[in-house]
Design a protein around this nucleic acid. Structure first.
Length: 196
DNA sequence: CATATGATGGACT
DNA sequence: GTCCATCATATGG
């Protein structure tokens, strides 16, 4: 259903992060479609980014230097974080999906997370991966490929006036430029982000 | 093999 | 609002 092409991801992480807002993240789990609108993202660079894990080298860095449009799943604080690699091969970059607004398969998501309130279901990077049943085994899937069980589809256009930006969350040293982007007024944007 | 660290979440006051 | 459990990585012995 109108999956975004690989070329979509072969751009600057910041541009991709902004453009990803309003798109549909689709996860096929046991034949069931779980989908949500992306409402919050963060851009990460390579060496020049003090917050990026690519800076420390290791396996993560290799993936960020690799081809665009692949899932990059990484564990922190006992949670899984879903990233999409950006930039052509040889240039490091990634976009972290921080929050989505659930639209399909909500009952299954709530089962996976056992939360009472809908607005707590996917309003955070670790929360949405649990709700979608995403773990390390979903690492390195091409999100531009129809047969992949994680894809990103065309959604609704977000008006530029509806896009807010801020400093990134939970990083020690951030860059000068705000690299976190979100849909203004959306209840599924993570609230923990109020700490600045 | 042991230890430190964090792109966090959730429980609790 | 505050506090701490948690575990995949990275790095050092």
């Amino acid at each position: 259903m109108n999956i975004l092409p690989q070329s979509f991801y072969e751009r600057d992480p910041k541009v991709v992060a902004i453009d990803l807002l309003g798109k549909i993240l689709v996860r096929t789990l046991r034949g069931i479609r779980l989908a949500g609108i992306i409402v919050e993202t963060e851009a990460y660079y390579g060496k020049k980014d003090p917050a990026s894990r690519a800076r420390k080298g290791g396996k993560l860095a290799e993936i960020m230097y690799g081809e665009a449009g692949y899932t990059l799943i990484y564990g922190v604080h006992g949670n899984w974080l879903l990233n999409i690699t950006t930039c052509p091969k040889g240039i490091p970059g990634a976009v972290l999906i921080r929050a989505i607004e659930p639209v399909e398969g909500i009952d299954l998501m709530m089962k996976l997370r056992s939360v009472k309130r809908l607005e707590h279901l996917t309003s955070g990077p670790g929360k949405l991966t649990k709700a979608l049943g995403i773990t390390k085994s979903e690492n390195l899937l091409p999100v531009f490929s129809k047969k992949s069980c994680i894809t990103i589809e065309m959604g609704k256009e977000i008006k530029p006036s509806m896009i807010g930006k801020s400093h990134r969350i939970g990083v020690r040293e951030d860059l000068e430029e705000p690299l976190r982007f979100y849909v203004k007024g959306n209840p599924f944007v993570s609230k923990t982000s109020l700490r600045l």
